[in-house]
Design a protein around this nucleic acid. Structure first.
Length: 848
RNA sequence: GCGGGCGUGGUGGAACUGGUAGACGCGCGGCACUCAAAAUGCCGUUCCGAGAGGAGUGUCGGUUCGAUUCCGACCGCCCGCACCA
């Protein structure tokens, strides 16, 4: 008899909240650091509390959740925490616009988003939740900052910084994209300010080397970080100039030194400034260089321009007089801001030399016999030195070493490694961030706040309505006594970059004592994070900073870990069609594009109409959901319509997780149908049924094994397909003990993905406890092997027949069977058989 | 320009280390159930062809008994980086 309780439709609305409450009650997902089980730390990038969860979060957290629940079923003690990256500009912007306090705004947003996350039934350890704006969090961050200061990794200096005029604050190099602020989009200006820096460059080599150990990271992300760190090795040396001065240049191609035909300096190089004194033409040229754009497109099209200073440089080996130019393509902040230009082997130099009629010499050739081949473009490749005096015949690598050796021997320069990576400026002139725990005293200088006076808490009564630093203009907050001499002194009013907050939050998740940031031994229990999941947009910023902080903390003895994230997965975006019309409704001649949201539109197989007027709208490209294109769906709406499990299932279906997932109404409806279908399937559990169904047993066990390996590989789309197949097989099978076992198994297999439905059915079927605490079903290896296989029979590589035979049938028998096939005989058609290839259990190919 | 990735039905995508291309989902078509609809179930669905059969994984070529998979050239799309000396 099947179970009549399953005749009614599965009521997600009611079941979701019941089981969410049951999990909370049973504290199912609280991680126990003292557990004897093997540990697994599954982490998704914690969200900024913007106010609501968007569909991208849902996809991200669903993936992590499936993995976390699966790991728990496999006997791991799982740490799967959640918190809030709660400091930052949007809270201050909201304060400016709406007059709400950043703290109140942030906490209200957190409450709203937490409710949404709870509705999705994620197996999160909420007991470890924190927000980075909690003084209990940022106070510990201040303590760590002081530790790094004591360890020599924090310093303060005046420097030219990237100033974001909209956010009214400084940005790190990494936070400037195409000359604009990464968040505000404003054109960044250069300013001189006293800034706090973290010595990330001290770990440049180590951060680079560490990338090789991160085999669980996407190649793409490792390449991006490698490029960002930007190691180059070369030679720095001085030219003697005709004006009696010296000019330091840096080159990665010392082997091409005999091909140098001019020298160039940046427009803001001191030599350029010197030349410009009393020289209007030079001044005009320098001004021209400085107004040049910095975007990729502008740079690409920018013409190479130069200004001949009239100064010449003496070639260190030939003694030739090389003209010194000011050139717009030389950057002051890389190397020494001056280069030796080798037109034959650097395209920029080639372009420049062509324009100004300077010599272009070949000094590297593929082989010595093409030493005089003409150059039509710069040849940057490998080869041997030619026309290069004592270097002639040497390979590029050897010649580099030889030139460096000679220059060093002459005391004229030295081999040098140059990095693109710069120290990380962490000062922000904002309110809503971690106060930097230092005090400026006229007598004692910059004094750390004693640890027993931490946290340095943000004042609540601030005026955020006007630009500028709210802490700096606060009437009382900054006035304190110097901890050393007791005299009146001033607090540091800069706050830390919010990327500092996210550089160690995973450590605080692993361990959160009240008297210190974390316990080193407890952290060692959980770290490294076994699987980290988040967006590709953090490939450099967050992930590089977090790797650096982990090293810096190891440097001062706070942690034993080096790489915080063993495996990284970057998931694709959720996309959706766009719907639009071209309108002229503003009365102008130019059409404007007006977008419509999916719920204003009726979509059919061959087009779309607007619900309002039943007239057609254009169906546009499938792109990332964004408010401006109105192609968004609200998680709360679809959860209400279909239930959390259908939404979760959709997030896992079809598209491989690293690729974009196109949202569709038809797709989510299909998921909703499958939830109901499974529900009915569970109702087919027939306690009275007996008997064996070997074929179904085999399918069940194959599915158990396949779904497990698919989840471990994060190939959720494949696991989903497997589960559809198993469901169909169960549907078709007759009642039996095997079928009951199959139903019990599929229930367990879908439980990480559809936990509410699974829990409801588990309960209805009278299974003990919560399925959230159940174990993954065991696989019988004997059932994974088929005893019959289908073998393809080809003639000339074309499929002619298939044979179903016992597994392991010997080659000669297989061959005989294949040749006996009527279809095969027909296509051989009496031709002579030259060769027969037999792959046991797979195919027979007959060559005639 | 440099680096990386991708190209498979109407559609999202499967295909283990070269071995039956198109699993599974969506859509579409047909049928059953129903007074009817919804829901559900069953069957079909790469293309051409009535059929036997033929063609087919961006294009062209190569290696192989056999290529979505390996190699070369080209075309197209996406992403990242960039006057980094």
């Amino acid at each position: 008899m099947t179970d009549s309780r399953f005749d009614v439709r599965f009521d997600a609305g009611q079941a979701d909240s019941r089981w969410q409450a049951a999990w909370d009650e049973a504290r199912c997902f609280e991680a126990d650091s003292a557990s004897a089980k093997p540990k697994s730390f599954v982490l998704e990038m914690f969200p900024y509390p913007s106010g609501r969860i968007h569909i991208g979060h849902v996809r991200n957290y669903t993936m992590g959740d499936v993995l976390a629940r699966y790991k728990a079923m496999r006997g791991f003690e799982v740490l799967h925490p959640m918190g809030w990256d709660a400091f930052g500009m949007p809270a201050e912007n909201a304060a400016m616009e709406n007059g709400v306090h950043p703290a109140g705004w942030t906490h209200a947003n957190i409450a709203a988003m937490k409710k949404q996350l709870k509705q999705l039934g994620f197996a999160l350890d909420w007991s470890r939740e924190f927000a980075t704006c909690d003084p209990t969090y940022y106070g510990h961050e201040q303590a760590l900052f002081l530790d790094l200061y004591a360890g020599g990794l924090v310093y303060r200096r005046e420097s030219a910084v990237n100033w974001d005029p909209v956010d009214q604050t400084v940005l790190a190099n990494e936070q400037v994209v195409d000359g604009r602020g990464w968040r505000s989009g404003a054109l960044v200006e250069k300013r001189k300010l006293n800034q706090w820096f973290l010595k990330i460059t001290q770990f440049a080599q180590d951060l680079l080397d560490g990338l090789d150990t991160l085999q669980g990271w996407p190649e793409k992300v490792r390449v991006m970080q490698e490029n960002w760190i930007g190691k180059s090795t070369g030679l720095q040396f001085a030219f003697d100039l005709s004006n009696g001065e010296q000019l330091e240049v840096y080159t990665t191609r010392p082997d091409t030194v005999f091909g140098a035909s001019f020298v160039a300096v940046a427009a803001d190089h001191p030599l350029a400034a010197g030349v410009a004194v009393g020289n209007a033409e030079a001044q005009a040229f320098i001004a021209l260089c400085k107004q040049g754009g910095t975007t990729a497109a502008e740079l690409e099209t920018a013409e190479k321009l130069g200004f001949d200073t009239g100064v010449t440089a003496h070639h260190p080996f030939t003694g030739a007089a090389l003209p010194v130019y000011i050139a717009n393509f030389v950057l002051m902040d890389y190397g020494t801001g001056a280069i030796m230009a080798v037109p034959g082997h650097d395209q920029r130099d080639f372009d420049f030399a062509t324009k100004y009629g300077l010599p272009i010499m070949r000094v590297i050739a593929a082989s010595a016999d093409v030493a005089d081949a003409p150059l039509t473009e710069a040849e940057a490749g490998d080869g041997v030195c030619v026309h290069s005096s004592f270097l002639d015949g040497m390979a590029v690598a050897d010649a580099k070493a030889e030139v460096i050796r000679r220059v060093e021997a002459e005391g004229r320069g030295q081999g040098k490694t140059v990095w693109r990576l710069r120290d990380w400026g962490v000062s922000r002139q904002r309110y809503w961030g971690t106060p930097i725990p230092f005090i400026h005293c006229d007598a004692c200088g910059v004094v750390p706040v004693p640890k027993d006076q931490l946290p340095v808490v943000l004042p609540e009564d601030v005026d955020i309505s006007i630009p500028g630093s709210p802490l700096a203009r606060h009437p009382t907050w900054k006035h304190v006594a110097c901890p050393q001499c007791g005299a009146a002194a001033l607090r540091e009013t800069d706050t830390l970059d919010t990327f500092v907050n996210s550089s160690w939050y995973f450590l605080r998740f692993a361990s959160q004592p009240t008297d210190k940031p974390f316990d080193t031994a407890e952290v060692a229990q959980w770290l490294p994070v076994e699987q980290y999941i988040g967006g590709i947009e953090h490939a450099i910023l967050h992930l590089l900073y977090a790797r650096f902080w982990t090293r810096a903390l190891a440097h001062v003895g706070a942690v034993d870990v080096k790489e915080p994230f063993a495996s990284l997965f970057t998931q694709g975006m959720v996309t959706h069609e766009t719907y639009y019309r071209q309108t002229y409704d503003d009365g102008s001649d130019h059409p404007r594009v007006r977008y419509y949201s999916p719920d204003e539109v009726e979509r059919s197989a061959n087009g779309a109409t607007l619900k309002n007027d039943s007239k057609q709208v254009e169906v546009g490209k499938v792109i990332k959901m964004s408010k401006s294109k109105k192609n968004v769906v609200a998680p709360e709406d679809i959860i209400a319509d279909f239930g959390a499990d259908a939404v979760r299932w959709f997030m896992l279906s079809d598209s491989p997780p690293e690729r974009d997932l196109p949202w569709s109404e038809a797709g989510i409806e299909g998921c909703g149908r499958f939830v109901q279908r499974l529900w009915r399937l569970f109702g087919q559990f027939d306690a009275g049924a007996t008997g064996e169904d070997k074929a179904l047993d085999r399918k069940t066990h194959q599915a158990i094994a396949a779904v497990a390996s698919d989840i471990e590989a994060l190939s959720f789309n494949k696991a989903v397909a497997r589960l559809y197949e198993l469901a169909s097989a169960i549907d078709k099978a007759a009642p039996s003990a095997s079928r009951n076992e199959a139903i019990r198994s599929i229930l367990l297999l879908v439980s990480p993905m559809m936990p509410h439905l699974a829990e409801e059915a588990w309960h209805a079927l009278g299974q003990p406890g919560l399925i959230a605490n159940a174990a993954w079903p065991a696989v019988d290896p004997a059932l994974l092997v088929e005893d019959e296989v289908t073998v393809a029979v080809q003639v000339q590589g074309k499929l002619r027949d298939t044979l179903t035979v016992a597994k392991g049938l010997p080659k000669d028998q297989l061959e005989a069977l294949a040749l006996a096939s009527e279809k095969v005989q027909r296509s051989i058609d009496g031709a002579q058989i030259k060769k027969v290839i037999v792959v046991p259990d797979r195919l027979v190919n007959i060559v005639v």
